[in-house]
């Protein structure tokens, strides 16, 4: 895979860092000049992924969330969010819209539905006790003409 640019970061799984992950993504995307909608979609996607790691992955323990962003050829953005938390026992159930394992915290159970809607592909690798790795890809539209 020919990676044109890459950014990696690791931060503790605390909710204040959800904004940090969005800011990192926005900064990484500056050279690609995404549309306002692409940027809004992708900020939502990374926020959902990082929130899942914090709320679900580390619900009973503490640890770090790792984010890797890559710009691939043909304006494809690759996002990987991983944690070493409790893992997902049933991935299919976790991805069912409105299902949540934390209803007492007002979780809507829509994180995966939003990530799927706002990306071109989403893969989940997880097993109980071994953490979770989410990888997503989204192709950005054509770069805006600079001379109009």
């Amino acid at each position: 895979m020919n990676t044109l640019n890459e950014f990696r970061c690791l931060f503790p799984a605390v909710s204040a860092n959800e904004a940090l992950a969005r800011a990192a993504l926005s900064a990484f995307l500056i050279p690609a000049d995404p549309t306002a909608q692409e940027l809004a979609d992708l900020r939502t996607v990374i926020s959902e992924a990082v929130t899942n790691a914090i709320v679900h992955g580390y619900r009973n323990c503490s640890g770090d969330v790792a984010v890797c962003l890559r710009m691939l050829p043909e304006r494809v953005l690759y996002i990987r969010v991983s944690d070493k938390g409790c893992g997902i026992p049933d991935i299919e159930q976790a991805m069912t819209p409105l299902y949540t394992s934390a209803p007492e915290e007002d979780r809507a159970g829509l994180g995966f539905a939003i990530m799927q809607e706002f990306t071109d592909s989403l893969h989940v690798r997880s097993s109980p006790g071994n953490g979770t790795v989410l990888t997503m890809r989204r192709k950005l539209g054509r770069i805006h003409a600079e001379d109009d």
């Binding site: 900020r43 926020s47 959902e48 915290e105 007002d106 809507a108 994180g111």
Partner: peptide
């Protein structure tokens, strides 16, 4: 300026 599914959870709750 920004809302993800946590905002939806806030409304549902």
């Amino acid at each position: 300026t920004f809302m993800d599914s946590s905002g939806i959870g806030l409304i549902m709750g």
